[in-house]
Design a protein around this nucleic acid. Structure first.
Lengths: 181, 181
DNA sequence: CCTGAAGACTTCAACACTAAAGTTAGACCC
DNA sequence: GGGTCTAACTTTAGTGTTGAAGTCTTCAGG
């Protein structure tokens, strides 16, 4: 079902409905937030469909990407992987089990410190990553094809400014964002 | 664990690493896509933390939102709910079970067509939605506070144009987006 | 050495989701 | 009005995730 089309009202209908139900709504803010959420959901469905053609899941692709980002020799401990992916160590253990049995990664004890485990990308894993990467960047190019280079730049900068607010701030007890600086 | 902080390299580091590993990468596109993905993940963690203070999960909040969007009397069938949320009907059955046992919704057979089931928001469910909505819009306002009104407008319009491409197109066999129009 | 404590996974039980099979009410046909 | 079809859920079996408990090194004292 992960590849199924999602059926929703149009964005404008949705915002109008929220305004009807919640008078205090700022339509401009809502527009940004709703578009962001929808876009992301659709993109994840699309990525899932693409990597499925390579025989891997979105979850496995996330692991491949994280290992590649570490740079050669593409190694990382399960704990570190879990932190980057926002998973519990338990989930990571199982995910690595699967991926190791599929030959995408190897899992070995660190010889210098036998408590530590080292997950390393196999050649097959790296190849899968490359194939997925090619499909993903084609898709991403298609996605932005209606935007000029300038517009893409503006979009990127605006998103990064919003991202900074969420990455560089800590929510207080009530969930409000306050500066850390 | 759903409320845990995520640890990642900075966006610029990440893009530099991808360029090292994948020469064909368009950094401008990657910047937009990566910022989008990160932003969304952080926002979902933040929403999850907020609604958790009301004793509900993100999943339950999605259902509340969908029912409210339907407008008074806030009714919808499980199948329709499932389609809007991108879930299987089976998952919907269980989610409604939980929410009914928590008093957020009621589940009844349609008197006119006893195959159909009607899920209806309770007053308690509507109250929870309102509380969650207030927290969410405060958070969303904070999120965009570094952007001027003009910038918010531009961001919204650019996102909507990208969204249109993904909503109005169908991926072909290779996953490329082609116009439906 | 031996003990206690901390760190880094792994195992276990419970829960949520998917795909597929099952159930039941209404619709259509003769 | 009985047989078959379809629609709309529900049930079942299997997989993936979480939180908590367990295991196995390593390290710091005594």
């Amino acid at each position: 079902m992960t590849g199924q089309a999602i059926q929703e009202p149009t964005l404008d209908e949705q915002i109008a409905a929220y305004q009807r139900e919640y008078g205090d709504l700022d339509p401009q803010v809502e527009k940004v937030v709703s578009a962001l959420g929808r876009l992301n959901r659709r993109m994840n469905v699309a990525y899932g469909r693409q990597v499925a053609t390579l025989g891997i899941s979105n979850a496995e692709w996330e692991v491949l990407k994280t290992l590649v980002l570490a740079g050669t020799p593409y190694r990382m401990g399960p704990g570190e992987l879990a932190k980057r992916l926002g998973l519990t160590p338990a989930a990571m253990t199982h995910r690595i089990d699967r991926m190791a049995s599929e030959g995408l990664v190897t899992r070995d004890r660190d010889e210098n410190n036998r408590v530590r485990v080292i997950v390393e990308l196999t050649d097959e894993g790296r190849t899968k990553w490359l194939e997925a990467m090619r499909m993903a960047s084609d898709f991403e190019g298609d996605l932005l094809q209606d935007l000029s280079a300038d517009e893409r730049g503006v979009l990127g900068e605006l998103l990064i400014r919003v991202l900074r607010r969420v990455e560089h701030t800590q929510p207080d007890a009530g969930g409000r964002l306050t500066d850390l600086d």
